[in-house]
Design a protein around this nucleic acid. Structure first.
Lengths: 93, 93
DNA sequence: TTATTATTTAGATAGTTGTCTAAATATCTA
DNA sequence: TAGATATTTAGACAACTATCTAAATAATAA
């Protein structure tokens, strides 16, 4: 949940693309995979980083694991990022 | 100016701390340096990444180089980040 | 139970990056 | 001009990370 984990998770283009995909709908790993040209283990690695940063959640549906954006934490993270860098009181030297 | 460069620049804790410092006021490199325990070349490296991502600008004042937040681009980047991850239309599977 | 499908874990490797020391560049002062 | 101060550049190195192949785990189907 730290801001560090959030930024590390967002710093990779593949992971940002995964999040963009999950904005449209929840998806199983193999469904996500068709959008990339990396192997499944590599994709799984990225998913675990996103999961660890609480940006996504995973639930099993039969043989598949369905990934979703973790909406509450995600909105929260976006706001946190915005506020972190919102200028409040800049003084020129 | 790409979103990639922005995220890469923001993914490092030292660089985020530099930006926080520059929110308060413009600062010379040696003034920034007292807040960190890294060498000046390392700090200079971070500053060049921030500069390259257009998050800061640099101007010379005598022997010193004064760094400032690049307000316009900075606000823009913050909004871009916020919008990139704002949920518009999420559908459950 | 055996085979098939879906995903993750383990372990190795190559590329990237943050850090350092040493040297170079730029400005100011005596 | 010589010396001091401020910062960057160059080059090396260690740590990190994204990727891969091979193997393991989990659920379903035959």
């Amino acid at each position: 949940m730290t801001i560090n984990k959030t930024f590390d998770a967002l710093a990779d283009e593949t992971r940002r693309k995964i999040l963009e995909l999950l904005k449209k709908k929840d998806m199983a790993v193999n469904e996500i995979a068709v959008n990339f040209s990396i192997t499944l283990p590599s994709l799984s690695h990225h998913l675990s980083i996103l999961k660890n940063a609480n940006l996504v959640t995973a639930r099993r549906r039969g043989q598949q694991i369905i990934y979703s954006l973790n909406l509450s934490v995600f909105e929260e993270a976006a706001k946190e990022i915005y506020n972190l860098f919102k200028i409040k009181n800049n003084k020129k030297v």
